[in-house]
Write a protein that binds this DNA or RNA. Structure first.
Length: 456
RNA sequence: GUGGUUGUAGCUCAGUCGGUUAGAGUAGUGGAUUGUGGUUCCAUUGGUCGUGGGUUCGAAUCCCAUCUUCCACCCCA
């Protein structure tokens, strides 16, 4: 008996309408990327696990999809590992490849491998799927597309500004109102130092990140659970009070605390410079300094970004930041980069909820030519060729069936014109063109049809 | 990974207290209408009731497991 087909958890098929809409998103983003001088690359779906492991923190390693080695993958394995069922220890023996978790780490690997061919600073963009073994839910899939743009080999904060401009431009073109949240890892490091818990930077940032979601009390409880002392937390509390001020006031307020701390002051300087640049360009959307923005990825060292839609409840739809030494782990130190990534699948869900997709995405074929069979069909093929040579998309219905059926086909596929070229029409050279939306039809020579459709 | 939730025709969903042959709308197919679609009318094809076990004289319905969906946590795009 035939088995019922299915696809893996958290993956999806994309049908024609969905693809038209997805391409609208991809096209918008890549047009903006190209406009800003970024060049497209692609990297393999799978990477060596040695490239991926340890780059995303402990949680990230768990969420990596690992690929079983080919062939007799159990030969030569230490028997005790199998007997003891130590699957964690066994993993490195039976799997040496994994599906990529994001596009940034493979990009760092790419830069190191191709360093001699690359002209720095290198601006690249990359639109490809990534995979995470997370539990799926709304806006979270196991296979999803990221749309990355990174500038590597330049420490200038102009890059941060350019990324902000691109974020603003993309969401302007997509008609989504957003807030661009920005923070700086150096400020967070300064805060951690100020409260006397620099070794807990990651725990502090992860807890802080949840402030607006779970509230101050729950954040403090989480910090205590992570071994942060109560005296540190007391010193932190006044810093949590700055959320309702404007960006400049927040920075001024912070200075009081971070005055003697070089890292923190450097972070504040960077933010001041970025905001000063931002003043000089016109942005559609608001930029907001958000001290609770932390981002889980460990490799960020400077500015960090996150974008949230204002009119739809959804996780972040774009994120990114500066990383000073991501290539260092692959043996190429002191190369700073900064990048952003749009989450195309979440943007899709946001646009769907806003009813924000263009309405005419499905009209890919302009004309359906009715098939009458025999010599008329052969005649129809040359009409189709003439139309295509003029750049008009058309198709000849492949079967000779009742023409009511053929009309219905055009109707369901929303093909706006049906061309009838039967024996009557072929005799006079004037073809019957029916406008499916108006219900009208007229007799036209082929040249007139081309003219009409081209001016359409 | 933890807790909860969901699954019946291609799609959207009914299905009573466990009781005969599981229904509707829509889509599909044929016709009313042999060269004209959308509207209308008539007829009609689709079901391992997610899957596997169990309880029962009898299971879509109750129980267990598993997969899937969605949600919360964790984390993230």
């Amino acid at each position: 008996m035939a088995q019922k087909p299915s696809i893996p958890k958290g993956t999806r098929d994309f049908s024609a309408t969905e693809m038209a809409r997805r391409n609208y998103i991809f096209d918008t983003i890549s047009q903006v990327y190209k406009l800003f001088g970024f060049q497209q690359i692609e990297t393999p779906a799978m990477e060596n696990l040695s490239t991926l492991m340890g780059k995303y923190g402990e949680e990230g390693d768990k969420l990596l999809f690992k690929i079983l080695n080919s062939g007799d993958f159990l030969s030569g394995i230490d028997r005790t590992k199998i007997q003891d069922i130590q699957s964690q220890k066994l993993t490195s023996d039976i799997s040496e490849k994994g599906l990529r978790y994001d596009l940034t780490v493979p990009f760092a690997r790419y830069v190191v491998m191709h360093r001699n061919e690359i002209q720095f600073p290198f601006k690249r963009f990359q639109i490809q799927p990534v995979w995470r073994a997370d539990r799926p839910q709304k806006g979270r899939y196991r296979e999803f597309y990221q749309c990355d743009a990174d500038i590597i080999g330049s420490q200038s904060l102009l890059n941060e500004i350019e990324l902000i401009q691109m974020i603003d431009e993309v969401f302007k073109r997509l008609n989504i109102n957003v807030v661009i949240k920005i923070n700086n890892r150096k400020i967070l490091a300064g805060i951690a130092e100020y409260i006397g818990a620099p070794e807990h930077l990651i725990a502090i940032t992860v807890a802080l990140d949840k402030l607006d979601k779970i509230g101050e009390e729950a954040v403090i409880n989480e910090m205590i659970a992570n071994g942060i002392s109560t005296s540190s937390i007391e010193k932190l509390k006044p810093l949590l009070k700055v959320q309702n001020q404007n960006n400049a006031d927040k920075l001024e307020y912070l200075k009081q605390f971070l005055l003697g701390l070089p890292i923190g002051m450097k972070g504040i300087e960077e933010m001041e410079e970025i905001f000063a640049f931002a003043e000089t360009i016109k942005l559609q959307n608001k930029i907001q300094l958000d001290l609770t923005l932390a981002r889980g990825l460990n490799y960020y060292t400077g500015a960090i970004f996150e974008v949230a839609a204002l009119d739809v409840k959804m996780g972040s739809i774009c994120g990114g930041g500066r990383y000073d030494n991501l290539t260092g782990i692959f043996g190429m130190p002191d190369v700073s980069g900064v990048g952003i990534s749009f989450g195309a699948d979440r943007i899709y869900d946001v646009l769907l909820e806003l009813d924000g997709f263009p309405k005419n995405q499905m009209q890919n074929t302009s004309i359906l030519i009715v098939n009458f069979g025999g010599s008329e069909a052969i005649q129809a093929m040359s009409i189709a060729t003439a139309l295509r040579n003029a750049g008009i998309s058309c198709m000849l219905f492949p079967e000779t069936i009742k023409i009511a059926k053929q009309f219905n086909f055009a109707n369901v596929l929303q093909i706006p014109y049906v061309l009838i070229a039967g024996s009557n029409e072929v005799e006079t050279g004037k073809l019957n063109l029916k406008d499916m939306n108006q219900g009208t039809q007229e007799l036209l020579f082929i040249d007139q049809i081309i003219e009409k459709l081209q001016n359409h």
